[in-house]
């Protein structure tokens, strides 16, 4: 009995290890399967965009590889009238909106997280309560407001209405609240004013959350189509990439149109994927969203 025990124990350990290993494999297989299901439809889109423009697709065949693979469709998409203008508009819109709303979110977040003043709780509470109001519900009054301000004919009509981004304010505020007050107090003793504290101490320490905010905001602004569409309803001529791709039928014939459209869709997604690849290490690993719990 006593002699048997150790070997039994090691057997048990070995079987537990084997179990652990097979569990790991199951996890990886399931996750890969989900990832595959996510990627596959986009892969089909990619295949579609790489077809030769002359191809007349077989109505019974699901193309898993492009027929007469060429990137001609991409060049055709780039030559669509207004593409470059729209690219410029979208880039300007995304960059300006991200920059302005980031500055505002930093200031408001900092004040709410790190300064003591009367009415702080009240200001926090009313700002937070608007997180429950989907912006789309306010589309109509905002439309009238922007029209009356005369902004609707310029790109600022897209940028300005949403620059006080409450979601961003609270995302940043939560993170800043975890920065020890003692650091700021000692800075104050050294004679730092609020701006100095904000931009030389708190901002560098909040870099991960700021990067997270920049990615999320940049991407969602790049992808926005509803508000630009509303602005166009008011007579604005500001085109964005999403809008021209949505309305895009170049008239090259039924099938070729579809291929060029696919190519255009891929093209307008590429910048986002690049931004994501560059910055993902910041915002996936730093566990930033836990602040929102």
């Amino acid at each position: 009995m006593t002699l048997n025990n150790p070997t039994e124990k090691s057997k048990k350990v070995a079987s537990a290890k084997r179990k652990e290993k097979s569990f790991q494999i199951i996890c990886i297989v399931v996750l890969s399967l989900i990832a595959f299901c996510q990627i596959f439809p986009f892969y089909l889109k990619l295949v579609d965009s790489l077809h030769s423009p002359e191809l007349i697709p077989d109505s019974d065949k699901l193309y898993l590889l492009p027929e007469g693979a060429t990137i001609e469709n991409y060049f055709t998409a780039l030559q669509v009238s207004g593409f470059w203008q729209a690219l410029g508009n979208t880039a300007f819109h995304s960059v300006m909106f991200t920059a302005i709303s980031l500055c505002i979110a930093i200031v408001v977040g900092y004040v709410l997280a790190k300064m003591e003043f009367k009415g702080k709780k009240f200001v926090s509470a009313i700002l937070l309560s608007t997180m429950m109001v989907p912006g789309e519900v306010l589309m109509i009054p905002n439309y009238i407001l922007v029209m009356n301000m005369g902004l609707n004919y310029s790109i600022w009509g897209l940028i300005l209405p949403g620059i006080v981004n409450i979601f961003g304010v609270f995302l940043i505020k939560q993170y800043m609240a975890n920065i020890p007050q003692s650091i700021l107090e000692s800075a104050e003793l050294d004679g730092c004013n609020e701006f100095h504290k904000m931009f030389h101490i708190v901002v560098p320490m909040s870099k991960p959350i700021l990067v997270t905010y920049v990615i999320l905001t940049f991407v969602s602004t790049w992808n926005e189509y509803l508000w630009p569409m509303v602005m166009q309803a008011s007579g604005s001529t500001v085109e964005t990439l999403q809008l021209i791709m949505y309305k895009f039928y170049p008239g090259l014939g039924n099938y070729a149109d579809g291929f060029v459209r696919s190519a255009g869709m891929i093209l307008i997604t590429i910048p986002i994927i690049i931004v994501y690849i560059i910055f993902q290490k910041y915002f996936l690993e730093q566990n930033n969203l836990s602040g929102m719990k």
């Binding site: 889109k45 790049w222 992808n223 189509y225 999403q242 869709m265 307008i268 986002i272």
Partner: peptide, 26 residues
């Protein structure tokens, strides 16, 4: 790997939906 689809815009996503749920046999 699993997060990136949330970065795809509504316009592109709906275009992919149209491709996947096309009415043709293919």
């Amino acid at each position: 790997l699993l997060f990136w689809p949330s970065l795809v815009s509504g316009v592109v996503g709906s275009d992919v939906t149209q491709l996947v749920f096309g009415s043709g046999n293919n």
